[in-house]
């Protein structure tokens, strides 16, 4: 093991390297292929309304997946984001329906509560798994249960409803035909991209995923970087909770069951390596699009539910196989 760590060893792939371009192009080509396929074979796929629908429908998954990207990049995994989202939503729902409180205060307190609740869960995931060096798979599986139980406990398993009209309006607002919630998600993607590629912090996250020991020996506080990655993931789950509530105008303690798997799928389809150190949040954006376009297009095709589920599974596997060959050729 070498202690001589150069910036190149620990940094992300540079934006213009040949490998990176092929990599991202590969995912875009797959997405483009799906879009062309559905445009040809269904009547309504490329209509403005349907595009708006797709953007709305992928927003929650995209927000969650941005956070999960951070965790997977350091070689971890977060299985708790769906439950954490539900917990954050329920806490925020309680806050928003507090009696004797102004509309604006209610929304502000609720949004703050959601983000804080998510962040705390993520922070705990990070501290426990990093301090004891335990597999995040099992720690976040524990958090999956803790957060779900907490969500049910806080709400007494009741759906919380009747949110202020202004909050509802945020959920259905449009900016030039694009749902506002999707714009928020895009801002998050950009922020994450900036942090991961343009800051020392981001480059060190890649470094930890590639060679944790090297980063440690270079004198960086690896523990806190790992905690930060999980905390960011929890924070995005809190943001996803706000989006969920704005979109559906309810906070349900059983929301988000299985969402973690969709988020992980988006990250992996997007070309981020499960073993960490390689990938990008732009890939995650494309991955979320592939999942969303597929879910939407297959219904427009009129395929029955069970076939739809099978095809979604097949496409996930194909995407990962394609990624394998892409990485192999790009490495040559």
């Amino acid at each position: 093991m070498t202690t001589n760590v150069t910036k190149q060893d620990v940094g992300p792939e540079s934006g213009l390297s040949m490998r990176n371009v092929i990599h991202k192009a590969g995912i875009s080509v797959a997405l483009l292929g799906l879009i062309i396929f559905f445009s040809v074979f269904t009547e309504h796929f490329l209509t403005p309304n349907n595009i708006t629908n797709i953007l709305t429908q992928i927003t929650i998954n995209l927000v969650l997946a941005v956070g999960v990207t951070f965790v997977i990049l350091i070689g971890g995994i977060d299985l708790s984001v769906g439950s954490v989202m539900a917990f954050a939503a329920v806490v925020a729902g309680k806050a928003m329906t507090l009696p004797d409180i102004g509309t604006f205060e209610a929304i502000a307190i609720a949004a703050f509560a959601a983000v804080i609740a998510g962040t705390i869960c993520g922070f705990m995931n990070g501290v426990v798994s990093a301090y004891w060096g335990l597999p995040s798979f099992i720690i976040t599986l524990g958090m999956l249960n803790i957060a779900r139980g907490a969500a049910l406990h806080v709400s007494n398993a009741q759906t919380i409803y009747s949110f202020p009209a202004a909050f509802n309006a945020f959920g259905s607002a449009m900016v030039f035909g694009v749902p506002l919630v999707f714009v928020v998600a895009l801002c998050l993607v950009f922020l994450a991209w900036f942090v991961l590629t343009k800051t020392v912090f981001g480059r060190l996250l890649y470094g930890i995923g590639n060679n944790e020991e090297a980063v440690r020996l270079a004198g960086h506080p690896v523990f806190w970087y790992k905690v930060a990655a999980f905390t960011i993931c929890g924070l995005t789950a809190g943001v996803a909770a706000i989006v969920y509530m704005a979109r559906l105008n309810i906070a349900s303690p059983i929301a988000g069951i299985g969402f973690e798997l969709n988020a992980i799928a988006a990250v992996i389809i997007g070309g981020t390596s499960l073993s960490g150190g390689r990938g990008s949040v732009i890939g995650t954006l494309l991955g979320a699009f592939i999942i969303g376009v597929l879910a939407n297009g297959l219904i427009l095709l009129g395929l029955n539910d069970f076939m739809r589920q099978m095809i979604t599974g097949v496409v996930i596997i194909i995407a990962v196989i394609l990624d394998y060959y892409r990485a192999k050729y790009a490495a040559k």
Partner: peptide, 23 residues
């Protein structure tokens, strides 16, 4: 016209129905 499952769930029903309405 169509009949699909949304597994009893609000968010999934929202997504699935939006897509049925498009079709």
């Amino acid at each position: 016209l169509d009949s699909r499952t949304a597994h009893w769930e609000t968010e999934e029903a929202n997504t699935v129905f939006s897509n049925m309405l498009t079709a």
